[in-house]
């Protein structure tokens, strides 16, 4: 019987969405061109070569090494790309993703990534083209609502602030705006103006966001109502506590 990863407990839509994010089986909702992605990431000019920190691995004359033989380098590593970042901020008002689930999604489904998880933001560092692959995936799929989530290299406290009247998560650096039905980005991740406005697509409706979110909230799916998740957290807590006290008494 093939192994079927279970990822996460819970019987609610939030738990189900968490499983989706972790599995990588998420719905694609929009397209972003490579040039637009490059613009908003702000690491290099669209169309320019990837700056590298070392020659391609094939030209490096690497030593014989069983690990090198066993592990296929990522495209970015093969090419010698520098390490760059993408950083997402997700509103606590039902943004589809949350920092931990972005990190789990990255670590489970992508290679060569270094996810960092904080309360207001989630950063992934990787070789530049590998990072872009992940960024494109997360931006284009149901993991991201352009109004409730965004790329922000700095000033991320909008995640916990009340939504403005237009429903676009507060951004101190005013990188993102609503124009008509679309959410546009006119500055890059760290707030530098970019040459053209990048259309990130339509915002999710409040109902859709509530349906797709991975955050428990009392006004949507309350944490206290997901009995299986609570039971699982309690089990983790108990196991860790007992393991420190008397490892042999830990229930497996």
């Amino acid at each position: 019987m093939a192994y079927e990863p279970q990822y996460y407990p819970g019987a609610t839509s939030v738990a189900e969405n968490r499983r989706k994010h972790m599995s990588g089986k998420v719905e694609k909702l929009r397209d972003i061109s490579d040039d637009d992605l490059t613009l908003i990431l702000g690491h290099r000019a669209p169309g320019s070569d990837y700056p590298s920190t070392h020659p391609p691995l094939t030209e490096m004359g690497e030593p014989e090494c069983s690990i090198r033989e066993l592990v296929e380098p990522t495209p970015g590593a093969k090419a010698g790309d520098r390490v760059r970042y993408v950083q997402f901020v997700d509103s606590m008002y039902n943004a589809p993703s949350t920092p931990y689930f972005r990190s789990y999604a990255a670590a489970i489904n992508f290679r060569g990534v270094d996810p960092g998880t904080l309360s207001g933001r989630q950063v992934v560092e990787a070789r530049e083209r590998d990072m872009e692959e992940l960024a494109k995936f997360q931006i284009e799929t149901e993991m991201t609502c352009p109004a409730l989530a965004g790329l922000r290299g700095a000033t991320v406290h909008g995640h916990s602030l009340r939504l403005p009247e237009d429903g676009v998560m507060f951004d101190m650096l005013d990188r993102v705006r609503k124009e008509g039905d679309s959410i546009i980005m006119h500055k890059d991740q760290v707030g530098r103006p970019i040459d053209k406005k990048v259309n990130l697509g339509k915002a999710m409706s409040a109902d859709e966001a509530a349906k797709r979110t991975t955050i428990y909230r009392a006004d949507n799916i309350a944490f206290r109502d997901d009995a299986e998740v609570l039971e699982w957290v309690h089990r983790v807590f108990k196991q860790r506590t007992i393991y420190g006290f008397k490892p042999e008494a830990t229930e497996l």
């Binding site: 949350t98 998740v229 957290v233």
Partner: peptide, 20 residues
């Protein structure tokens, strides 16, 4: 012990906790 359980619960509820 109650402190640490609270941390676990908070992290799971909001999908986030503190910084690294």
């Amino acid at each position: 012990s109650g402190w640490y359980l609270s941390m676990y619960l908070h992290k799971e509820a909001h999908g986030r906790l503190g910084f690294f």
